[in-house]
Nucleic acid binder design. Sequence first.
DNA 1: ATGGTCGTGTGACGA
Length: 256
Amino acid sequence: MKIVSWNVNSIKARLEHVKRYLKEEFPDVLMVQELKGLEFPKCEFENIGYKSHAVTQKAYNGVAIISQSPIDIILDHLPYDNEDKQARYMETNINGLRIINIYLPNGNPVPSDKYDYKLKWMKRLYRRLKYLRDNDISFIIGGDFNVIPEDKDCYNPSSWEGDALFLHETRSAYRSLINLGLTDAFRVFNIEDKQYTFWDYQAGSWQKNNGIRIDHFLLSPVIADKLQSCTINKTPRKWERPSDHTPIEIEISVES
DNA sequence: ATGGTCGTGTGACGA
């Protein structure tokens, strides 16, 4: 079973990219982030054999899951704060697998209410994932975490000092998630540095490979044992008018 | 070099 996460930076601007990707790679599940609008082109995906479900808001954020198999919605928001209306979380069952798609807050500038929100959001996420672990519910969580886990996951660690994606407190909160017993799927197969999923539009970042690794898949233990591969697919970042992120892909063996 | 680039929605803000 092939599952992919991709921050598309507007589903309207990237519709043809997403359709092309589905036709070329034919994933079982594609989770997308940063839809950036209320409208979601569900019919466009139906026409090429995909079901979908989106959680959207006006102008900002937004996540969706596009799947060959039916999607059961478990949650369409991150629990433990009823005041939080931002469209950043969805939790589903697909083929009996618990699949979670997140767009974790960026949090810049630091300090700010945005950074406070990011840390609170990460604590809420911890609480939800701990609940799933405590109740022996296996899961796959993927998405744009807006966290650079280690120095080797960015091109110039000193230039990221003080950034909300790289601060000690951010990475510490991320490690707490890992310490629930989760596996960073990418690092199972690749321990090299300079393995990025995002390159800024500015200053020739792509051409200079000045990127960061912030899109991740974390797997609970039973599913981690079934992981076959995890690959960053840089091809869509080379297309015309690309997203600033590129897809990260995992393959899970599922008994049939 | 105190910039540079996108996208939303149509002005300022977010990344």
